[in-house]
Write a protein that binds this DNA or RNA. Structure first.
Length: 276
DNA sequence: CTCGATCCCTGGACGC
DNA sequence: TGCGTCCAGGGATCGA
């Protein structure tokens, strides 16, 4: 294993100390994280330094990360920061220009703590559980969709796409959504994510999957990135506002603003006029 | 609990 | 062409 820049790695020394010789037993996904389950080494002294225990490598790709295997003679992409030499001769390379990703070698309780912090998987969560996680919350729905401890794995694109499909304004207070709206949002989240996964995701600038192929779902975006263009449903002009600190694209006709948000959501306006 | 602000980082867009 | 400036985004963190 070779490390380049390491400021996105929790404990680079732990990687160098504990990773060589391990086998990747399986790969799991927790929201936006990949979890590479590693074998115990069985080497002499392993029980003293902890290598006899099960361990995992947690990887987040951030905005621009990529983890993929290459033939060693393949030239390295710019901003490659980690090289894992595999026993079949290939190199697993981690590339991340912006280094918004994260890599961490974790065992035992540290790993358990990380995993329990995740919310429900939106693809598996029942309508009832989804509703129970939403209904008592006074935060705006967009903020909750992006909160990884409520639902894991939803990012800005799929939050906006789902809200457009459900005809819900991103600044609506979650607790004020009707039962029908909550149910609809649950349904369109699953549908949107399922279709996006089938299309290998959205390549806005440079996203490539582990096979080096771009996603196709950006061609089906109905809201995200479409400021100033016509709504596919009603032909009104798609707008962009900041909600929960993120760009939020929505149709002002299909997704009516909550009364309490009209002053606060306006561009640059001070949000002092919220309902009691 | 929820909010906004700030920082991290680089490439791309834009203005001159 | 080559600067400078601004911005995007996921998430951690801090103060209100």
């Amino acid at each position: 294993m070779t490390l380049g820049k390491t400021d996105f790695i929790d404990d680079p020394a732990a990687l160098e100390r504990h990773l060589p010789g391990r086998r990747i037993e399986k790969v799991e996904r927790y929201g936006k994280f990949m979890l590479l389950r590693l074998s115990a080494t069985g080497q002499a002294g392993a029980s003293e330094n902890g290598d006899a225990k099960e361990a995992s490598l947690l990887v987040h790709l951030g905005m621009t990360g990529n983890l993929a295997p290459y033939a060693p003679e393949q030239p390295c992409a710019k901003h490659t920061h980690v090289w894992f030499r595999l026993d079949d001769g290939r190199e697993l390379r981690y590339t991340d220009p912006r280094r918004f990703g994260r890599m961490a070698y974790l065992t035992g309780e540290l790993l358990a703590t990380e995993l329990t912090a995740f919310g429900a998987d939106p693809l598996l969560v029942s309508a009832e559980e989804f509703a129970s996680r939403i209904r008592s919350r006074s935060a705006r729905i967009k903020a909750l969709l992006l909160d990884q401890s409520v639902l894991r794995g939803i990012g800005n694109i799929y939050a906006d796409e789902s809200l457009w499909r459900a005809k819900i304004h991103p600044a609506r207070v979650a607790a004020q959504l009707s039962k029908a709206q909550t149910r609809t949002l649950w349904r369109v989240l699953q549908d949107t994510l399922g279709k996006a996964i089938a299309a290998r995701g959205s390549s806005i600038s440079d996203f490539l999957d582990a096979e080096g192929r771009p996603g196709e779902y950006q061609r089906r975006h109905r809201a995200y990135g479409r400021e100033g263009q016509r709504c596919f449903r009603c032909a009104a002009t798609i707008r962009r506002v900041i909600v929960a600190g993120r760009s939020s694209y929505f149709c002002p006709r299909c997704q009516p603003a909550p009364r309490s948000a009209k002053a606060g959501v306006k561009r640059g306006r001070r949000a002092g006029a919220r309902n009691a």
